[in-house]
Amino acid sequence: MLKVHNLSVNYRGTEALNSVSLAIHAGELVGLIGPNGAGKSTLLKALLGLVAMHAGQVLFEERPLVHQRQRVAYVPQRSQIDWDYPVTAWNVVMMARTVRTGWLRSPNPRSRQAVEAAMQRLGVWDLRDRQIGELSGGQQQRVFLARAIAQDADLFFFDEPFNAIDKTTEAVILDLLAELKAHDKTVLVCSHEWGQALNRYDRLLLLNQRLVADGDPQQVMTLDNIQRAYGENLQPSERPAEMPFFC
């Protein structure tokens, strides 16, 4: 179980996250939503120790998560990557095995098998020798997911995996999320989605600096919660009052 206690992050003098507490169980697929600038990516980064916490604690199975980073697979937003970097899809996926392989060593056959299996699983094996810039957006996303799978992690953080991808990739990702869930992995997905798509998550976390709501999608996406997170001006239009934000 991933447990977060009173996590606060200050970013250059402004408050990015205020006392966020949450718990995610193994086998749970959790969506993290909120307006732009709500601190969604910052929360993922704070959990991983990539941005400094002002206060709080992040535990995975009762031990600090930063001490067991090998168990977390993190897929950053596509915009953080330079897609012109001279590297092939195979080498990107192989990065997952860097820490496990250890300093001064070359990847062993098991690592090669893990990389091949992950690339096969996500349908990018045939693209392994291509430079990543030559792939489509959806293919690039699948290469990054293959990297996450090849790491043999227990905890998965995905930052906007559904952003600007094709239908095939969306289906592949959904299938993968279901599989991870079935294998009792803990999955946290930061997302911009809206409407029906949110029903795919077991639970939603609605964030705007603070945790505004935490519960199953129907409970979270109420008009009251949405207005608290996105501002009072947001009005539902032509939707039944009890389910204002589902299509």
Binding site: K45, G49, Y74, V87, M95
Partner: peptide, 19 residues
């Protein structure tokens, strides 16, 4: 080489992985 490749390509993921 492999650590430098990971770090220069995706520093956030490299740090997250514990490099």
């Amino acid at each position: 080489y492999k650590e430098l490749l990971f770090y220069t390509f995706d520093p956030a993921a490299a740090e997250a992985a514990g490099l």
